[in-house]
Design a protein around this nucleic acid. Structure first.
Lengths: 336, 336
DNA sequence: TTACGATTGGAATACGTATTCTGGTACACA
DNA sequence: TGTGTACCAGAATACGTATTCCAATCGTAA
């Protein structure tokens, strides 16, 4: 393999390396004849500039980092993330960037990733997906003036760029829908405590109940993770209550599917005896039995806004707002 | 932000930049006292080396590239890929690499990605997922001696490192299973012509039929893509045949789910009147109605082997074989 | 006391590109 | 013919790190 450099091209074209660089960068201050000669040599040998050297010189890598706060195993089973990643790849590509993806659940590996992606300047900016409420990185990122954007929420909203589903609204929407259908004892099967998605949907759930004048029973709210297994166990516990709920809001479709399974195994009729609703309108929602109602955000829009906000920061263009909210809508199916 | 360099650290520690580098690289030829002094300064100021400069100097970026031959939209809906990406992230991380993901279906954008990732030396090696039969890049990659590994198949097997499901075996396994259940008219709903996954499973399908002495009817084999929609349409066409099949092998679970929907809409009883089997054991298989039988490869193993083969190439360690096959197994559920 | 090997750290350089600085040519004008 | 002005391209430099080369110091042995 030739391992071409601008120097080689320069020698072959009998010009200086600087001129080759100028030709490549489209600098107008170069004679047309020389330009043609250089271009011909470049074309002939198939020269492409070395991105590593460009990175060092320009202080830009052309790579965006995506850090997801889930273990790789959780990632593998979660359709929300595959859609998110795919869409971010799409929009990053359109903006001329590559995407570097990392996943980590444990705090120490997150620290390592943080050091390794950011401080080393390996990426030009960072998209953080659903960081925990108390994430020690945010202050440092802010302090260093490093471009980043959150997907999810962060409390001091006016300090940090973020893009988020309207999770409070989504929680309300799901709960109000069940209330409209006449349900009163409505359970909420959640993910981890402290994760904003979960907390926000919980807030929406509480708001809807309160406004309807319905009591919010603490025994009907169960925290856990984003697995089908958790949905199954939580639903089993709920069905064992002296007075089980007649409807369930599950924090994620996968969790809802677990709940459906628990109900099915006990012969609880859906939706007659128990209504279930999830979030994200995952691909499988329409194929489960019965098809699962879901409150959904347009993931592509979410990805697009996050990517654009980040790229604008990096390229020092105007970003009009700090916080962007992508609204949700309801997909009605047979499970309610 | 301080924008620290080894030079700054050197000045602050009253040593030379070379010494700082030696301390960081663990070079033994440096006095213990100095080492401590330098380490203290590094610690105090939170210095981390610049990956871009290291890349230029060492000719390594520490990044693996993953190129998927699907459009981002297809990617978003395909659980196989989300699992694959997640697992590759996991094993790349364990080997000390980051992962850069790109997706492209169109040939010209693949060319662009190829130029941009490889020729620019932005990544140390490439994982190509399911390249088309005639992919113009392979010869150039080989010629340049650039480390890469295929997930999927490539004909001149002894020239290229590849890791693959045993797709022929999987096609056989699915078909033989249906044959054992007494089916004779077995259809195959495939993805795109020319994609090795599809062709190989087709080969296995044909082999099984032939060995059982069952005729292979061309009207029972339909090519398309990996969408649920395609499964739906293909199944509809099959059910319109004068003599419809009694069993279907679908090239992917999502396609199988589409087939199930078409059957359900026409009131065809499953599995009594029609047996359906898919591939990949996607997360939703157990939740569809009825639960979908599937032939599955362990995606984590696939990802692990691909990553290891690539990393060994990059680090110039021994790679004993060119071609690695990950065997499949059958997951029986109610759809057969 | 001299000489020599071992040890240690600084100076210099290379990685490949982008850009600033500088010098030289050509042309116009006086 | 001399001076000023564009214009163009080569030389030099910087980006931050890793490493090679070399000089200085020290200890030990003759």
């Amino acid at each position: 393999m030739p391992e071409l450099t601008q120097n080689q091209i320069a020698k072959l074209s009998r010009v200086s390396q600087a001129t080759v660089s100028r030709v490549l960068r489209g600098d107008p201050r170069v004679n047309e004849e020389l330009r043609q000669r250089v271009l011909a040599v470049i074309e002939k040998h198939g020269y492409v500039p070395d991105a590593r050297a460009q990175s060092l010189r320009s202080q830009r890598t052309g790579i965006l980092g995506l850090v997801v706060h889930r273990s790789p195993k959780q990632l593998a089973r979660d359709p929300f993330f595959s859609a998110l990643i795919a869409s971010i790849i799409e929009f990053a590509g359109k903006a001329g960037y590559h995407l570097c993806v990392d996943a980590a659940r444990a705090v120490q590996s997150r620290r390592a990733i943080y050091e390794d992606l950011l401080r080393t300047r390996r990426v030009d900016g960072l998209i953080l997906v659903e960081p925990q409420t108390q994430d020690e990185r945010m202050p440092r990122l802010l302090e260093e003036g490093f471009p980043f954007v959150l997907i999810g929420r962060y409390e001091p909203t006016d300090a940090v760029y973020s893009v988020d589903n309207d999770n409070i609204g989504a929680g309300r929407m799901a709960t109000e829908y069940l209330l409209r259908k006449g349900h009163q004892r409505i359970a909420y099967i959640s993910g981890p405590r402290g994760l904003f998605v979960c907390e926000d949907r919980y807030t929406g759930y509480q708001q809807a109940l309160k406004e309807a004048g319905v009591c919010c029973f603490p025994e009907l709210v169960l925290w856990g993770d984003f697995t089908e297994e958790h949905g199954y166990r939580a639903m089993s516990r709920l069905l064992n209550l002296p007075e089980p709920p007649t409807a369930v809001v599950a924090v994620d479709d996968l969790v809802a599917v677990g709940a459906l399974r628990a109900a099915r195994e006990r012969g609880v009729a859906i939706p007659q005896e128990l209504a279930v609703i999830g979030f994200n309108d995952s691909p499988f929602c329409q194929y489960v039995d019965p098809p699962l109602s879901s409150v959904v955000v347009d993931i592509r829009t979410l990805a697009q806004m996050a990517t654009e906000v980040l790229v604008h920061q990096i390229e020092e263009r105007e970003v009009p707002h700090r916080r962007y909210i992508v609204p949700c809508h309801l997909v009605e199916r047979a499970s309610v």
